[in-house]
Design a protein around this nucleic acid. Structure first.
Lengths: 154, 154
DNA sequence: CCACAAGAAGACCTTTTGGTCTTTTAGTAA
DNA sequence: TTACTAAAAGACCAAAAGGTCTTCTTGTGG
């Protein structure tokens, strides 16, 4: 469904938010280890997300990645579109350029409701929402790390 | 959603079935022109589909691609899986290896219904079904070709 | 039986995606 | 102010996806 880059970004950001809830700012080594992604590639992805303002980072000792609480929650759709464009939400299942209600392809009436459901999901859900669900439902899994003692976090 | 190869295969096969309904066997040049895909690439895709038994072909004058009426209709799922594997129907939105009801990722409860809807659609629908819809609903579009006079077709 | 009209086969190329590695920059604590 | 820690930057590499091109092979129809 999603590209690897998108999957890694989702997992990394949810992981960062979870650690932020625990008053920690995880570094790239910890993040990549816990969400089980290639470290350098994950670093590159996060650097782009920092540049684009989805998440922030702090260099040096006790540095790491974190969300600015003054900013709005990160909407999944904005994140996904920034990585892989909006083809998933607006494209035609047949790959036709012009396919809509007035000019439907043979798959249109089957496919449109699914596409709309995907759009609704990613429009309504946020990284912070996913992280909160994780905290609320102890069945939900994401990483191998379950509890880390908080360190000082200004 | 789907890979280009899958999209081209869907369009090509539906086009072939539509022409078969008109007692014609379209050739690769006609197919690629009408469904607006790269000719050589489309030829390559169709050759693979012939080898795998999804469609048949006839060389020489008045040759072209056609469906064997004695065989079962082509289920979209079988076609798609043969091209891009079943990740779309069984994979996790987060890209986790082990993600299910018992071990859900944070996106699981949102994503599973969508994935199931996709699975249902491609399991129930066939190339022949799509082509028939096309014939029944004159709004539906696929190619630039709307009517071609039938030629002899044994 | 030959000319021609197709599809078959496969080598090759380009772009995108996924990924590694090395060097630089910046922040912090002692 | 130095030593260390951590992110930033970007060159580089590998695999997969997407696509082209040339050369067979096969099946008619005349």
């Amino acid at each position: 469904m999603f590209k690897k880059e998108t999957e890694y970004a989702l997992r990394a950001l949810v992981y960062i938010q979870l650690q932020n809830f625990k008053v920690r700012r995880p570094g790239i080594v910890e993040i990549a280890t816990e969400i089980e992604t290639p470290q350098s590639f994950t670093a590159k992805i996060l650097q782009r997300l920092v540049k684009q303002g989805f998440v922030e980072s702090q260099k040096g000792i006790n540095g790491g990645f974190y969300f600015n609480k003054d900013k709005a929650d990160v909407q999944l759709k904005k994140l996904i579109v920034s990585i892989e464009g909006d083809n998933l939400f607006s494209g035609c299942g047949f790959g036709l350029k012009q396919c809509d209600e007035n000019n439907p392809c043979p798959l249109h009436y089957n496919y449109a409701p699914i596409r709309d459901a995907i759009d609704k999901l990613v429009t309504e859900e946020t990284i912070q929402g996913l992280a909160k669900k994780y905290n609320a439902d102890d069945k939900i899994i994401l990483s191998r790390l379950n509890l880390v003692s908080p360190i000082n976090f200004p």
